[in-house]
C-alpha cells in the first residue's frame, strides 16, 4: 500500500545554501537522473521533504494493516486466511523498509513514531474508511493496492537511492497484493447473487476514496513542480489518476462489476476515459482528521505501541543479562 500524494502539506522552506559548489553538484546529479545517497550533500529542504514523504509513506503501511487485519480471524477459508496474513505481514515489512530508508536521512525511528502517535504526521486517507464486509478485503487488494502500484512504480526511479531501492522491493510484493484481491473477488463473483451484490456494494463504497488516493488535482498541487524538479515525484496526480482509471475499467468488465460513476465513458478523441467530479470536500475532511475511522485508527495504533512496551523492555533486559553473563565468563 502506499501513501497519499504528499503535496497536501507545504514544501519545506528552502534555505539559501552556503555551499554553492555542493548545490551545483546536487543539481547535476538530479539533472542527469542520477541518485543522491545518504552521505551526499543535499539541500535541507530536500532532506526535510523526503523525511516527511518517506515516513508518512511508512505510517500508511503501518495503519494500513488495520482495515485488513480486521478480517484475519473471519476469513472464509484457511487458504484466504493464510494469504491475508501474508499480505498484512508484507504491509508491516513495507513500513520497516521505509522507516529504514528514512533513518538514513538522520531522523530516528522514535521521532517518526512519535509524530504518528501524536497526530502530527499524516498517513494515506484511504485507511480511514472501514472494512465492513469480506468483499472489502478483495477490493482493497484490487483497487487500493492497484492505485498504490500506479503511484509507487515511478518512485522506483526517485532520486534518493534508499527510497528508490525500498520501492523496488515494495512494488515486487505489491503485485501479489493486487492479484490476490482480484482473485478473491472473482471467487465471489462465481458464487451466489448475495456474494455478487456484496462485491458490487463494496466497489461502490471504495471507488471514489480510491481515486482520492492520488491526491488533489494538479491545479491545486502547488508543490508538484518542486517535487518533480527534485526527482522525488515523477508523474503528476492527475496523470496517475487517469492512468489508473483507464487500467481499471476493463478489469471491472472482466470481473462483472460496474463502477459507480454515471459520467465514466471512453473519450475517443482523448484516447482516455472521461470521469465525474471528485468530492474534494470529503477528501479534505478525511485528511483533516474527520474521516469515518481516523480516531479509531490512531487510538488502535497508539494502544498497540504502548501495550507492546513490555515486550521491548523484556528484550532489552534479556540482551543486557546475556551480555553481562558473557562478560563475566570472559573475566
Amino acid at each position: 500500500m502506499y501513501t497519499q500524494a504528499m503535496d497536501t502539506a507545504p514544501i519545506e522552506a528552502g534555505q539559501p545554501t552556503a555551499n554553492a559548489q555542493a548545490q551545483q553538484h546536487f543539481d547535476q546529479v538530479i539533472d542527469s537522473q542520477g541518485y543522491i545517497e545518504p552521505q551526499d550533500w543535499m539541500p535541507e529542504a530536500y532532506r526535510k521533504t523526503l523525511v516527511r514523504q518517506i515516513s508518512q509513506h511508512a505510517h500508511s503501511e503501518v495503519v494500513g494493516m488495520q482495515p485488513e487485519g480486521n478480517w484475519i480471524s473471519r476469513a472464509p477459508s484457511l487458504k484466504r486466511k493464510a494469504i491475508l496474513l501474508a499480505k498484512v505481514q508484507d504491509e508491516g515489512g513495507h513500513a520497516l523498509y521505509l522507516y529504514s530508508a528514512a533513518e538514513t536521512l538522520g531522523t530516528t525511528r522514535d521521532q517518526m513514531l512519535d509524530a504518528l502517535h501524536t497526530g502530527r504526521a499524516k498517513y494515506s486517507s484511504i485507511f480511514n474508511y472501514p472494512t465492513l464486509t469480506w468483499a472489502d478485503v478483495g477490493v482493497i487488494g484490487w483497487l487500493v493496492d492497484g492505485a498504490a502500484i500506479m503511484n509507487q512504480v515511478p518512485l522506483c526511479r526517485c532520486s534518493f537511492g534508499p527510497y528508490a531501492r525500498a520501492m523496488v522491493r515494495v512494488c515486487r510484493e505489491e503485485s501479489f497484493h493486487q492479484r490476490q484481491g482480484y482473485d478473491a473477488l472473482m471467487a465471489m463473483m462465481r458464487g451466489t447473487q448475495a456474494q455478487r451484490d456484496m462485491v458490487q456494494e463494496s466497489v461502490n463504497r471504495w471507488w471514489w476514496p480510491v481515486l482520492m488516493m492520488f491526491g488533489p488535482p494538479d491545479s491545486e498541487s502547488p508543490n508538484s513542480a518542486q517535487g518533480m524538479r527534485w526527482g522525488i515525484k515523477r508523474v503528476t496526480n492527475d496523470e496517475l489518476r487517469q492512468k489508473f482509471i483507464d487500467a481499471t475499467v476493463p478489469q471491472a468488465q472482466v470481473l462483472g462489476v460496474s463502477l459507480p460513476d454515471p459520467d465514466l465513458r471512453w473519450n475517443e478523441a482523448r484516447g482516455q476515459h472521461d470521469f465525474g467530479a471528485i468530492n474534494w470536500d470529503e477528501f479534505w475532511q478525511v485528511v483533516g482528521g474527520n474521516g469515518p475511522c481516523n480516531r479509531e485508527r490512531l487510538a488502535t495504533r497508539v494502544l498497540a505501541h504502548t501495550s507492546g512496551a513490555w515486550v521491548r523492555d523484556a528484550a532489552t533486559a534479556h540482551a543486557n543479562k546475556a551480555h553481562a553473563r558473557r562478560q563475566a565468563k570472559v573475566a
Binding site: L96, A101, E103, A166, R312, A315, H318, A319, A322
Partner: peptide
C-alpha cells in the same frame, strides 16, 4: 546490503 533493523541484540 539490503537495509536495517532495530534490535536489542
Amino acid at each position: 546490503h539490503c537495509g536495517s533493523v532495530h534490535a536489542a541484540d
